[in-house]
Design a protein around this nucleic acid. Structure first.
Lengths: 342, 342
DNA sequence: TTCACGAGGTATAACGCTAAACCTTCGGAG
DNA sequence: CTCCGAAGGTTTAGCGTTATACCTCGTGAA
């Protein structure tokens, strides 16, 4: 049985309220002698205040939900990005005295779980990696301060922190152009109306246009972003598009696969085909040649998200609508410089 | 302001207690008419019971702590293993009506945070990836049902779920022996009195002895388990031990590095050197040749851990002391069969 | 001498919920 | 016609805290 204020009060021969005052540093109302006595007893009994009781009266739980989609067995935790992000978020919230309630959300019926979460009276929530439709469903049932990571919905009052994917696509493609490439393939998931891929594609287009190069739809390879898909894409590219000298892949995993596929087809990276990825996974430095890729500052992203969340938890005005985090290109060994003598 | 039992009672013209009975399915005490009315109103007002209030009276929080060590910026979440494990744990606990409180613990002063956690009156806790000394410190302050993942402490009353690392080392080495290798290096962290590495090493020794092969300390390479260390080790092995035809590396990351180092030294895997790893990371299938490695069933491990935890949460008797999960060898392309004609 | 005031408390109520004891009514059984 | 028990409640108390209002001194000013 846990020690309560009452226990301390009894032993100190005073009231619960006085003990509470001491524990919470509300001196002013208490004599030094009492403070000392209560302090000593609390220490001796190893008193820890009850978070639940406090939540009840304070009408604030000090709990922040971190919600991830759970698609039958493999949830988004799996992405190394999100893992790092969650780590940073947890640590920051901890510093501010908040606790993290981790919850995976069934993709088919997100609202069912958010309803359950509401019972915890969360002070805030972070959504990571959800589809827009899911976000909308959850936001409706869960009633808290809220920040979303990586949403691409336009017309919303959500606080959203996402990457500058367009710039990423642009930087990758421009880099290839600067190195003398003119036939540059775009490999990634099917391009939709809006979303990450569309953004990256827009950056790709922009770079091409800016350089006066044609945008050739034949150079767009639509595929999933797993390693195996990359291998296939690399083969295909080598076989059917021998004129292509460079690829921008929307994910490192894909890029790594492409490198292997190209090699399997008897060609070489970067001699015959240059590759730029996106994400800067650890993997990018494990492959050889090491992968030139687009990188983001995960810590900065997570930090920004928590800052925004804390802000909107403490003041009711929603401060910003969308924060777009910067990206950079990391040059490594997977791009050949065609402007040098052959 | 959240809807409470009181609100419903008012609107239904009855008492809080009756509403509580209806909400919790304690019929028997309530007429069908009342049940229906209260139900309807609760639905209409979108009532969700307060978890904090319930915790307070039930003296059980429905909260399970999942604790991870946090060593200045990069916590153990980073390991893909633990990520998967946490995912499974969360989902299982969710099914049983528990919520997960995720917490990273400063490695230097673990007890400070566990004290704070105690205020949540956790129903249980899972420790993942801690050192024995830390576990002891935390166990002392945190007073709950408890299950530990991957501890190698012997003499304890902890419930511990760990891998059969010894068997892993044994299987890897035996496989190499079966393929005709006799000079087999062991690459991994320094071997300590007890712990993962020691266990794997014991397995390695056992396989060698069993085959009547000498155990040569010169073939033990102590190193960290990062990719870069692997490269170095691969080089070193190629340069200084040309007679060695096979390596057992205690981690896939290391194994992948070794493969690269060997290649950098102008030799080939598996032609000149065979490599077996440990972990079966995704990476193992991304490298070429694909890595032969020791694998574990992460889901089984996480499941077992939660089962044990639930057990010890519900009954006070500590059921088991240590559960050792099985491992298997996955054969892929990084081992050469020397018994075939050259 | 009286009064106001501050210092150092104590008492009460409330947060939202549940367990347990306590009231009504009503329809039989004795 | 009295008493009993069941059905369908209601009341009271309590989980561990905190906010707020309320007491009781002793001191210094009027």
């Amino acid at each position: 049985m846990a020690v309560t204020l009452k226990d301390i009060a009894q032993e100190a021969g005073t009231t619960v309220m006085t003990v509470s005052n001491v524990i919470n540093g509300r001196y002013g109302k208490v004599s030094q002698a009492t403070v000392d006595k209560v302090r000593a007893i609390a220490e001796k009994l190893d008193y820890v205040p009850s978070a639940t009781a406090r939540s009840l009266v304070a009408r604030s739980s000090r709990l922040v939900g971190v919600l991830l989609p759970d698609s039958e067995g493999s949830n988004v935790l799996v992405s190394p990005h999100n893992v790092a992000v969650i780590g940073v978020i947890e640590r920051m919230l901890q510093e501010h005295g908040y606790y993290v309630l981790l919850r995976s959300i069934p993709s088919n019926d997100p609202a069912s779980v958010t309803a359950a979460l509401r019972s915890w009276n969360l002070d805030g929530a972070v959504f990571i990696g959800f589809l827009d439709s899911q976000i909308r469903a959850m936001r409706a049932t869960l009633d808290t301060a809220l920040v979303v990571l990586d949403s691409y919905e336009k017309n919303s009052e959500l606080m959203n922190v996402r990457l500058n994917d367009r710039k990423g696509g642009y930087l990758a493609t421009r880099h290839l152009i600067e190195k003398g490439h003119t036939r540059i393939a775009f490999v990634g998931p099917r391009i939709t109306e809006r979303g990450v891929v569309k953004e990256r594609y827009n950056g790709y287009r922009k770079a091409l246009r800016e350089a006066g190069l044609p945008v050739d739809d034949a150079l767009i390879v639509a595929t999933d972003v797993a390693h195996a898909n990359g291998i296939e894409a690399g083969r295909l590219l080598s076989d059917q598009h021998p004129d292509v000298t460079a690829v921008f892949a929307t994910a490192d995993l894909l890029a790594a696969g492409i490198m292997e596929g190209v090699r399997a087809a008897g060609r070489d990276v970067p001699a015959d085909l240059s590759v730029v990825g996106f994400d800067n996974l650890d993997l990018a430095t494990y492959v050889s040649p090491q992968l030139t890729t687009v990188t983001q500052d995960l810590t900065a992203k997570a930090t920004r998200a928590v800052e925004l969340l804390l802000l909107s938890m403490h003041s009711d005005g929603v401060p910003t609508n969308e924060t777009v985090m910067d990206v950079e290109l990391v040059e490594r060994g997977s791009v050949r410089d065609l402007t040098l003598a052959p």
